[in-house]
């Protein structure tokens, strides 16, 4: 554990809490892509099956349980409790276009052909692109609520911090995981446009609106 990873994990946790609080406080999931949240639930479910097989640390296990529980809680709020506010008309990204390539890629490029390893690899690839339905939704409506943009920023910053952590680990432990690094870089690049608009607009107190 190093400071970059810890900050990354904290950003990830903040993102999830911000999203849950936003939906809970406003009693609405308007502007939130349920499809991205389905993909994230799938990411955590496939990655954290190792909860049953391997023990890393208390921190590790607790965080995994929090990520799993909060992702299903988010799905419950979107698809059950506040279903009436779910903006399904704008959430039209076809997730099979992400799921199928991720399945194929994880069968082609993996560290090991064991079930748990294949699920982990799939989860890494899927996480890299899981935000696309949400970004698609923002681009379709041309705007995002300020709180939604805070959520997206924290979620993007998490993987960006992981990249710094991987560089640090490469030099201190000579450890590098090619699959996680390449997927993590792609994941961060997908947020780049958003980061730019967030920094130039939202942090200056303006609304998050895409240029016409």
């Amino acid at each position: 554990m190093n400071i970059f990873r810890l900050l990354g994990d904290i950003c990830h946790l903040v993102a999830i809490i911000v999203l849950l609080l936003k939906i809970w406080k406003t009693r609405s999931c308007a502007g939130i892509s349920g499809k991205s949240q389905i993909l994230f639930a799938l990411v955590y479910t496939t990655r954290y099956v190792d909860l049953f097989f391997t023990y890393v640390s208390l921190y590790n296990s607790v965080m995994k349980v929090i990520f799993l529980a909060s992702s299903y809680a988010t799905l419950y709020l979107i698809y059950v409790k506040f279903k009436a506010t779910y903006d399904f008309n704008h959430d039209t990204f076809r997730i099979e276009f992400l799921l199928i390539p991720c399945v194929i890629l994880s069968l082609l490029i993996t560290h090991d052909y064991s079930p748990v390893e294949l699920l982990w690899t799939f989860s890494i690839y899927l996480e890299a692109v899981a935000i696309l339905p949400q970004l698609f939704m923002v681009s379709k409506t041309g705007e995002a609520e300020t709180i939604t943009s805070h959520y997206l920023f924290a979620l993007g910053a998490y993987r960006a911090l992981y990249i710094v952590n991987w560089i640090y680990r490469y030099y201190t432990e000579s450890f590098i995981d090619g699959i996680a690094v390449v997927a993590g870089i792609i994941q961060t690049i997908l947020y780049a446009d958003f980061f730019y608009l967030y920094i130039t607009k939202v942090l200056k107190g303006k609304d998050f609106k895409l240029p016409a």
Partner: peptide, 10 residues
């Protein structure tokens, strides 16, 4: 050098 699985990250 790419090393194999060591999934201590989240």
């Amino acid at each position: 050098e790419f090393r194999g699985p060591k999934h201590d990250e989240l």
